[in-house]
Amino acid sequence: MRQLMQAGLIAMMFAMPAAMAQNASPAGMWKTIDDETGQPKALVRVTEENGVLNGRIEKLFRPAGQDQNPKCTACEGARKDQPIVGMTILSGLKKEGNEYTGGEILDPAKGKTYKSKATLKDNGNKLEVRGYIGAPMFGRSQTWVREQ
């Protein structure tokens, strides 16, 4: 009986991180990491309302001497020439299984909007965000690191 209880406890210890990751929410503050340079780019606050994720830039990491509050000059429509800090760049993601899909992500540097999906990784401490055209295989991924 004692061995059976120990085996059960061990099984629960291994199952808990997976269960926690499945129940974790992407809501919170994330540091975006540039997929080309590996350097931090911004802090994005992801919120979840009625099962839909949206993300807004709260801070940019820019070298000294560069404009610390740049405008989205490459954007079109209502975002044209608006400050990037405070701009919603991630919108409309809905949970589907272990992923969040069906959303859009804006690349303020290019002013382009792409389809998007996101997946929590590393027990909810990392968020893999993919922007793509057409199908997910035609895109780029960034890994965002949870700040809080």
Rank of each mutant, 00 (worst) to 15 (best):
V129A: 06
E36C: 06
P40H: 01
M137R: 04
M13L: 04
E76T: 13
E58R: 04
C75Y: 00
A11I: 08
N123H: 06
R140A: 11
G38L: 02
K115E: 06
Q66W: 11
G134N: 10
Y100N: 10
V44D: 11
N98K: 13
M12Q: 10
V85S: 04
S116K: 06
T101G: 07
T32M: 08
R56Q: 15
L53E: 05
D107Q: 04
T47L: 05
A24M: 13
M1Q: 12
I84E: 02
A18N: 08
A11P: 01
V52W: 08
V85P: 00
P17Q: 11
P17K: 00
E104W: 02
W144L: 00
P70F: 05
N98Q: 14
R2A: 13
V52E: 09
G124L: 11
M20W: 13
A42Q: 04
A135M: 14
G111T: 08
P70C: 05
P26W: 11
T88F: 03
Q66S: 08
E96Y: 07
M16R: 08
N23W: 09
S141P: 00
R45D: 12
P83F: 11
G102W: 00
V46L: 14
G92I: 08
I105C: 00
E76R: 04
M16A: 14
N69H: 13
G97T: 03
D67R: 14
L120F: 04
L9I: 08
Q142L: 00
I57E: 01
K59L: 12
T119D: 07
P26S: 06
Q22A: 15
T143E: 02
A109V: 11
K110A: 12
L4Q: 15
N54G: 10
K95M: 10
V46Q: 03
A11M: 14
P83S: 07
R62L: 15
K80F: 05
Q68R: 04
N54M: 09
D34P: 01
E36Y: 10
Q39I: 08
R130C: 05
Q82F: 10
I10S: 14
F138D: 15
K126C: 03
G55V: 03
V85T: 11
L43F: 06
T32E: 00
E104G: 07
N54S: 15
R79C: 05
R62M: 12
T37G: 02
G139Q: 06
M1P: 12
N98Y: 09
S91Q: 12
I33Q: 09
W30K: 03
L60Y: 02
L9E: 04
I33F: 07
P83R: 04
M5I: 15
Q6F: 09
E99L: 14
P63T: 02
M29C: 02
P108H: 03
A64L: 09
A15R: 08
K41V: 03
K31S: 01
R140I: 03
Q22P: 06
N50W: 03
K126S: 12
V44P: 00
T32Q: 02
D81S: 11
K71V: 14
V129K: 05
